[in-house]
């Protein structure tokens, strides 16, 4: 488990570096769909998203003048936000599935204990 945690931490650092530093070097050419739309003449039907005024719109942090820093910070924020949301969702699903009497799951009683001990602490919503 500790080794898995190490792996995940290293992976998160790699993702932060890609989004925070590497993305500066990404191609700024239009992507496949944008290029097709321009070439075929339907790009004008695109409308601005309702979130176009978001402080992180188009992967740059509003108020930061340096483009490289602005893009890097936006990338870092995005990675952390996705990690939090996706990690939270999958952890919540895992706990609940381990909590049900799915005796068929051979993997471990350990995690079931884990879950029951944590149960009262979180998920006050008590769905299910």
């Amino acid at each position: 488990m500790t080794r898995t945690r190490t792996f995940v931490l290293v992976g998160v650092v790699v993702a932060l570096l890609i989004a925070g530093v590497g993305s500066w070097y990404a191609s700024s050419s239009p992507d496949g769909l944008e290029a097709t739309a321009a070439e075929q003449g339907f790009d004008h039907t695109a409308e601005d998203s309702a979130t176009a005024d978001s402080p992180l719109a188009d992967y740059s942090l509003a108020g930061v003048d340096d483009a490289r820093l602005s893009g890097g910070l936006a990338g870092v924020a995005g990675v952390l936000l996705v990690l939090l949301l996706a990690g939270g969702l999958t952890l919540a699903l895992r706990r609940r599935s381990a909590g049900t009497r799915d005796g068929a799951d051979p993997r471990d009683e350990a995690s079931t204990h884990d879950v029951s001990s944590r149960h009262e602490v979180d998920d006050p919503a008590g769905r299910r």
């Binding site: 992976g11 996706a86 990690g87």
Partner: peptide
């Protein structure tokens, strides 16, 4: 999702 794939899923999405 078990104790291995749940943290991996968060990492993979990020």
């Amino acid at each position: 999702l078990d104790e291995r794939t749940a943290p991996m899923a968060g990492l993979t999405a990020a």
